[in-house]
Simulated scan of single mutants.
Amino acid sequence: MIITSLITEYNPFHNGHIHHIEASREVSGADVMIAIMSGNFTQRGEIAVTDKYTRAAEAIKHVDLVVELPLYNAVSFADDFAKGAIHTAALLNSTHVVFGSESGDIDDLKKVYGNLKRSDIKEKMTAFMKDGYSYPRAVNAAIGGDVFKGSNNTLGLSYIRAIDELSSTITPMTIQRVGNEYSEETLSSSRFSSATSLRKALENNRKDEAAHYMPESLVNAISSEGAVSNADIFNSLKVIITRAGISELKNIYMMTEGLEHRIKSKIRKHNNYESFINDLKTKRYTRTRLNRLMISILLNITKGEMARYRMPEAVHVLAMNKTGRSYLKTLPEDLEIITNVNSKNRNLIHREVAATDIYNVFSQSDRNDFNTPVIIRD
């Protein structure tokens, strides 16, 4: 039996994701398709444009099971993001993981990963990163190529590394990413457009344009509920940062090299998120890295918490169809499968529950992990 997992954010769910699901089903020969999806906060340091339940409800029209990626992994660097996702895939007895990449060639990606394990390449990378190179740029400089020109290639490398380091038997596969670049803010001329461009369109209420690239039902849901973005969290961030002492900020996960002083000195000079981040960013501190840091500040994720964090042995199910429900019954009895959150099991996903409550402050939604049952699609 072939169990194929996809590691996703679906922020928002769009035509490119449908293509990814269909192509992954075909290339892997999947009997069961699972989406391991970030919750309400994402790896690129963004509050999700719409909540995890709305996104899961759309995804389950195309896959058999949607489960939540643990929060600590969902908002972390690529390697930790990938490790949590591969761990979750392994808990679900996945045989394959299929991801999109700019390369589209799994052998090339494996070859690069093999090179990055060499001591001489590691030394070169360390030197480049000390000089302020971003991780993908350091990889390219160290190996003398440009295979990691693209965020999906970078994540692909992390998935391969996670499978290796976790000694997993999961088979990694990749398909070529379609459409414009992930970070492209302008809507594409093809039927596939980047998540970034779609979020911009939805935030600006250009729903008719967005509907060309994503399910109309989702466009209508987001339009009705209101799109959420990092702009919405700025005032809360400003209060938190202004109130916090330097020592408190220093303990926030991903806070390095005295950045807390820079953040503290600049926060009161700005009245919106964009101008604040633009003032903070440098070659070393990219927008994405700063976005992640802001989410850690908002959620009060500390270095100590992350140091103590161990991969969970529970799986939080957000949505399933008949195939997914039947498959869950085949999994080991000692695997904690959470379909409805209650007082007895909430401690297993307490961080995800809290993150949803915080998300609701900005989305003005009343849907949480207690009053929103698992989505079942027949």
Results as ranks from 00 to 15, higher is better:
L187M: 11
I277Y: 05
N73K: 02
V317N: 01
V66H: 10
R55F: 04
G258M: 03
A23G: 07
P332S: 02
G132P: 06
N271V: 01
N251R: 04
S24H: 03
I337M: 11
Y113F: 12
A85F: 01
V374N: 08
I18M: 11
D357F: 14
F99K: 06
S5Q: 06
V27W: 01
R206P: 00
E352Y: 15
K303V: 10
V66A: 01
V32K: 01
E336D: 14
S134H: 00
S158I: 06
I358E: 04
G45V: 04
A141S: 12
L290V: 02
A162Y: 04
M37H: 05
A201K: 12
I21H: 07
V67P: 08
F234I: 03
L198H: 03
N93P: 03
T286M: 09
I267A: 13
H350D: 14
T282C: 04
V317R: 11
R310S: 14
S194H: 02
D366L: 09
A244I: 02
M294E: 04
I375W: 06
T8L: 13
N205W: 09
A244M: 11
D120V: 08
V374C: 15
N278T: 09
V147W: 09
K124S: 15
N368W: 13
A354V: 15
S28W: 12
N11R: 03
I3L: 10
D31T: 14
I295H: 07
S326G: 11
N115T: 10
V49L: 13
V63F: 03
N15Q: 11
F13E: 09
Y309S: 06
R137T: 12
K303N: 11
V374P: 12
K111E: 12
E58M: 12
S119N: 13
L298Q: 06
E185M: 14
M37C: 05
E209W: 01
A355M: 11
S224G: 10
S275R: 12
V63A: 02
N347S: 15
M173S: 08
F81S: 01
L299W: 04
